[in-house]
Design a protein around this nucleic acid. Structure first.
Length: 583
RNA sequence: GCCUAGGUAGUUUAGUGGUAAAACAAACCCUUGGUAAGGGUUAGACUACGAGUUCGAUUCUCGUCCUAGGCUCCA
């Protein structure tokens, strides 16, 4: 079934849900009910009622009771006056009717037999047959028309599929996704924890979690140094004036931590690194010879995200960003953006992430009409957006454009990744900024000996480490590739008689830079293997009498493959060549 | 922040208006075992926190904190 028909199926099911709920809860009003990816939702103003997931069984039964009567949707075009009259009891429908009429859209009602609704979308031909394979999934609050200022409605999410088999498969996929959830794996694999006492949105990384972070950090710093970045170190705290100069303060006051007053000075935990790097740039005059100047930093940042927005490691209140600011003459900006995209491709390749499947590029544009949210300079916006678009086109990568997603100082290219729940977040970002150079009076001396204003490219190559770790945990389902695995080798003695040899092996492997864990517990070999496998440790080496005699080790992988006996040196060079291939 | 649901040993869960049960993990003992769970013993919970109702609350009510799924937000 193609997407259009699937959408019709799902949207039709939202009607069925609306009808059932209205019958069960007199006075409930249905608002919008669109198809979404893998399902649909339907919003209700429940009036005096409230709904929880416990009510789903009852609602689903009602839907099945109604369904046989729904033979065919019939459509009818109506005028605004007629619509207002037909839906006089439903203010949401009336508001939509007015809105559509204002936009010059035709108003249409449809009726599957006993449920007249205002609606313009596609519907299935034969509802009673096609709508059988549905399931209600969750209930949530959602603001009417998506605005915090409006009333909160009750939203019911559901899914529907052309066949029972597809429905079952989808439900199994949802279950499987839960198993990959980085929050569950973070617990099971001992990577990070939260503490009520420390605070929400403030993750504590365990030794294993911190190891992954350290590997990523070293990986990206080394790679950036190779590519010509200068790594710097600036304080995670600064005077509020710095952010007043940058213009961040009024725009982002809500998400900054409140200022601390120390001796007549107001200090703030930094929510971003840009102004620090600009201050560094301005510390002395800059010549065109050294441009572009690329300051990179593994930078801790602090943002007061609203409590409901926090999710595991994906949205946190303090995080470490692989930040950089490329301060470049305008004519070199395009080339520099291209270089950043090359770096991002390199990173994605190292992780085995594929464009289109695991991530996608988004060209995030401004809105010329919204001068509150975006700095007003139409010409600069047009120019900056055209440059980013051009680079994306030349890279021949698939991308999509999104209005109203830019930073206040310019448009950006975002690398969007999906988490196991299907929610998309920005992993990496490249931003074109023509505002900060003005605000900070950034200048360099050009080859004519005159002062010239550069542009700034803000970019986060490997993103925020916490968030990137979350994506990677889910991407690998916890089975990290050798180079990233917090523990690479589990040494499993067959009994405790071989301590001396084990110590020797452990020392040799550690000296070779490998990450080891020895399981000396008084347990059977089978149990030790099980434990190491559940911890998703890539390699297990088993040492017993045979290995001690021949000075070898028996190697087994977490996938259950037996690689036989190897000398320690063979094993080391085997692993090392594997790691090198990745990097 | 808002809507809905939830919070019981380190973890996953059970349970009850009369101060809590199990599995795994832990510690110890027996076993010295060869490729996914050997056996036993012990310890571990002021049932998230605070208040109320009650003779008595882990259980009922309210508040606070935290978590999940959404919404809003996401530099």
């Amino acid at each position: 079934m193609d997407n259009k028909n699937l959408d019709s199926l799902r949207h039709s099911c939202a009607h069925l849900l609306a009808h059932a709920v209205k019958q069960l809860y007199p006075g409930a009003l249905n608002a919008i009910g669109p198809a979404i990816e893998n399902g649909f939702y339907q919003d209700f103003d429940m009036g005096k009622w409230s709904i929880s997931e416990e009510d789903f069984q009852k609602i689903e039964a009602k839907m099945r009771e109604i369904l046989p009567r729904w033979q065919k949707f019939t459509f009818k075009e109506v005028t605004l006056v007629e619509a207002k009259k037909l839906f006089k009891d439903n203010k949401y429908k009336v508001e939509m009717a007015k809105e559509f009429a204002k936009q010059g859209k035709k108003l249409q009602t449809n009726d599957p037999g006993d449920f007249l609704d205002l609606c313009k979308m596609g519907h299935v031909e034969n509802p009673s047959k096609e709508l059988r394979n549905f399931k209600l999934l969750s209930v949530a609050g959602a603001y009417w028309r998506g605005s915090e200022k409006n009333k909160m409605l009750t939203r019911i999410y559901g899914t529907v599929w052309p066949s029972e088999k597809e429905l079952k498969e989808h439900l199994i996929r949802l279950e499987e996704a839960k198993k990959r959830d980085h929050r569950k794996l973070g617990q099971d694999l001992d990577l990070f924890v939260f503490s009520d006492l420390v605070g929400k949105g403030l993750p504590l990384l365990t030794p294993k979690g911190a190891t992954i972070k350290r590997i990523l950090e070293r990986f990206i710093v080394d790679e950036e140094l190779k590519r010509g970045y200068s790594h710097v170190s600036t304080p995670p705290i600064a005077k509020v004036d710095l952010y007043r100069t940058s213009g961040h303060y009024p725009y982002y006051k809500e998400t900054m931590y409140p200022p601390m007053v120390v001796d007549d000075e107001e200090l703030i935990l930094r929510p971003m690194t840009c102004p620090h790097h600009f201050a560094l740039f301005k510390s002395r005059p800059r010549s065109y010879h050294e441009m572009p100047v690329s300051f990179a930093e593994i930078s801790p940042q602090f943002r007061y995200e609203k409590s409901g927005e926090l999710t595991g490691l994906i949205r946190v209140r303090t995080f470490l960003l692989s930040d950089a600011h490329i301060i470049t003459p305008k004519e070199k900006a395009e080339e520099e953006i291209k270089k950043v995209l090359d770096l991002i491709s390199f990173i994605n390749k190292a992780f085995g992430l594929k464009a289109g499947k695991d991530y996608r590029f988004r060209l995030s544009l401004g809105d010329r009409k919204d001068s509150k949210k975006y700095y007003k300079d139409d010409k600069m916006w047009d120019y900056a957006e055209s440059i980013l678009r051009k680079v994306l086109k030349n890279q021949e990568v698939p991308y999509y454009e999104a209005e109203n997603e830019a930073a206040f100082y310019g448009p950006k290219i975002d690398v969007q990744m999906k988490n196991v729940n299907g929610k998309e977040d920005t992993a990496f970002t490249v931003q074109y900024d023509f505002v900060m150079p003005k605000r900070f009076e950034l200048r360099f001396i050009n080859h004519e000996g005159k002062e010239e204003e550069p542009v700034v490219i803000h970019r986060a190559s490997i993103g925020a480490f916490e968030r990137t770790m979350a994506f990677l945990i889910e991407h690998y389902a916890g089975a990290f590739p050798l180079w990233l695995a917090p523990v690479q080798i589990a040494i499993l003695p067959v009994s405790d008689k071989f301590k001396d040899y084990i110590l020797k092996v452990e020392k040799t492997l550690k000296e070779a830079g490998l990450r080891i864990e020895v399981n000396q517990d008084n347990e059977t070999l089978g149990k030790k293997i099980r434990k190491a496998t559940l911890q998703k440790i890539p390699y297990m080496i088993i040492i017993g009498e045979k290995e001690v005699e021949t000075e070898q080790c028996s190697v087994r992988t977490r996938d259950g493959k037996d690689l036989g006996q190897l000398t320690i040196n063979q094993f080391i060079s085997n692993l090392k060549s594997q790691i090198e291939k990745f990097l």
